[in-house]
C-alpha cells in the first residue's frame, strides 16, 4: 500500500516539510512505497534554482531531487497552485506529475498523511 505524504506549506518557514521529507525517506528505507503531493503554497518546494545557503538552510529542491534515487515512486503537484505561483514546466523539478484536483489525487491512495 502506497503512503501519500501531502505538503501544503511553503518551504523554509517551518520544519514541518522537512519532517515530511524524513518520513518519506524512512518509508523508502524500509521499501514501503511512498509518494509526495504538493498543494497550495507547498508547490514552492518544487521550484528550480533555489539557494538557501544565505539563510543557513539546506536547499529543499536539492534534497527532494534525491527522492527518486531512494525509490519514491511519484511526485505530484496541484495544477492550480502551480499556476497561482507561476511555476511553469521549465520552472519546476523534472518528473513532477500535475494533478487537476486534490480530491482526485487523494482518491488514488488509501493511506494519506498531511505534513506538519
Amino acid at each position: 500500500m502506497t503512503t501519500l505524504i501531502v505538503i501544503d506549506q511553503a518551504p523554509y518557514g517551518s520544519w514541518s516539510g522537512r519532517e515530511a521529507l524524513d518520513m518519506v525517506f524512512s518509508l523508502a528505507a524500509f521499501d514501503q512505497p511512498a509518494a509526495l503531493l504538493f498543494i497550495g503554497a507547498g508547490v514552492n518546494w518544487l521550484r528550480k534554482s533555489q539557494d538557501a545557503g544565505g539563510i543557513g538552510q539546506k536547499t529543499v529542491e536539492k534534497n527532494l531531487a534525491a527522492a527518486p534515487v531512494f525509490g519514491v515512486e511519484q511526485i505530484l503537484a496541484e495544477q492550480s497552485a502551480c499556476e497561482r505561483f507561476r511555476l511553469g514546466e521549465g520552472d519546476r523539478l523534472n518528473g513532477v506529475e500535475l494533478i487537476p484536483s486534490v480530491r482526485d489525487a487523494l482518491d488514488r491512495f488509501e493511506r494519506i498523511v498531511f505534513a506538519g
Binding site: 524524513d22 525517506f25 524512512s26 528505507a29 539546506k58 536547499t59 536539492k62 534534497n63 531531487a65 534525491a66 531512494f70
Partner: peptide, 9 residues
C-alpha cells in the same frame, strides 16, 4: 554536491 545531504540512513 547534488543533494546537499548525506544519504539519510
Amino acid at each position: 554536491k547534488q543533494h546537499e545531504m548525506s544519504p539519510p540512513s
